[in-house]
Structure formats: structure tokens, C-alpha cells
Simulated assay, not measured.
Amino acid sequence: MTARVAIALAGLALMLAEPAEAAGSAKRGEALAKANCASCHAIGRRGASPNPKSPPFRTLAEFYPVESLQEALAEGISVGHEGLEMPEYQFTPAQIDDLTAYLKTVNRKR
């Protein structure tokens, strides 16, 4: 194999790997959820939410398509959970991609 072919194959491998990263990192999304959401919501595949009125993340797809949450995350989610006002969060586009990628890993299929 010539050096040019090897370089071309390495470049192709990098280009193919980029779209997955561009779509968001579930690992970073999980860290973001732990830092900002876990005090009220169950963010994993099992367990109860610390605030019983805050829905577990794994059930969000039952109410909303996960992708539809992207706009709300960008504009700032401000929701009340019956007597407890959710803090308003505004996420960057990269954080939204990461959080969306994570939500897709924990949500049940309808």
C-alpha cells in the first residue's frame, strides 16, 4: 500500500467518524443532565425522580418526540411541576445536540 492510499484511507475514516460526533455526544449529554437535571429528574433508565412530580427522562418520548425538545432547550425551558418551578435553562447548540443524543439512549420506544 502506498503512502498516498494510506493517507486517503485515514482521511476517509476521519470524515466518516465526524457525523456521529456532530450529532452530539451521549456521554457529554449525560454529564450535562447530571449537572443540571438530576436533582429533580431520574435521568437514567431506571429509578424514581427525586421530585415525584418531575418526569423521568426515560419517559419523555412518551409525551414528546425527543427532537422536538431541541427548540425548547435553545429558547429556555421554563416549566412548573405542580408547586415546584423548574429553573430556566438555555443550552448552546452543542449542548442541545449532546443532551438530545443522551435522551435517545434512555428513552423507551413507544
Rank of each mutant, 00 (worst) to 15 (best):
P87Y: 04
G76I: 10
I77V: 15
V79M: 15
A35I: 06
G76D: 11
A101K: 02
A6D: 14
A13T: 15
Y102W: 07
I7R: 10
K34W: 12
Y89G: 00
C37M: 04
N107V: 15
E85M: 08
A3L: 14
Q90Y: 06
I96Q: 01
T2P: 14
R108N: 13
R58E: 11
L69A: 04
A48D: 13
A8W: 11
G47W: 03
P65A: 10
A35N: 07
E67S: 15
R58F: 08
P52L: 02
E30M: 09
T100S: 13
G76P: 11
M86D: 06
P52N: 08
I77Y: 04
R45I: 12
A61S: 14
V106D: 03
A26Q: 05
E30I: 02
S78G: 08
R28A: 15
C37V: 05
R4M: 10
A61Q: 14
V79Q: 12
N51T: 00
S54R: 00
L69V: 05
L16S: 11
A17F: 12
L73G: 07
G24Q: 00
N107Y: 05
P87V: 04
E85R: 11
G44C: 05
P65W: 04
K104H: 06
L69W: 01
V79F: 13
A94C: 05
Y102K: 01
A101T: 06
A13N: 09
I7E: 13
Y102E: 01
A101M: 04
E82L: 09
T100P: 06
H41V: 08
I77L: 15
P87L: 03
A8K: 11
S39H: 10
A13W: 08
N36A: 12
M1D: 15
L99H: 00
S49L: 02
A26N: 12
Y89P: 01
A72L: 09
Y102Q: 05
I77A: 13
N36P: 07
Y64G: 04
A22H: 07
P52V: 03
S78H: 10
A17Q: 08
S25N: 10
G80E: 10
S49H: 09
S54I: 01
H81S: 04
T59G: 05
L14H: 01
S54V: 03
G47R: 02
P55H: 09
L12R: 12
L16E: 13
P19K: 02
R58G: 04
G11R: 01
S25W: 00
A23Y: 09
